[in-house]
Amino acid sequence: MFGSTVMLATWFVQPLRLPSETRLWMLLPLVACVALVYRATRARQVRELPWATVRTFLTIVFGMAAIAAGFYLAHLAARRFL
């Protein structure tokens, strides 16, 4: 018990390291949490949540990917024509 408490405290005292290639993937759990909380504020009961959350999750992820693709294309265009 004491050992696990010390280990838990160490996690928060010395920051965890994150491999740089995993940085982008950290978006997905956060989007899942945002989608879940947003849908929970509009639901009467928990059973309404799963599909609504999945739809919101996909909307946010694909929406952000589309925005990123748009900026990337604008960047390529700027490099070529400016």
Partner: peptide
């Protein structure tokens, strides 16, 4: 049910963020 959803969906990003930031 909603209480459990809010607890998990808010606590997980908070403590994960705190673990990456350091207290």
């Amino acid at each position: 049910g909603l209480a459990a959803v809010f607890f998990v969906a808010i606590s997980v990003p908070y403590w994960l963020g705190m673990a990456f930031a350091g207290v």
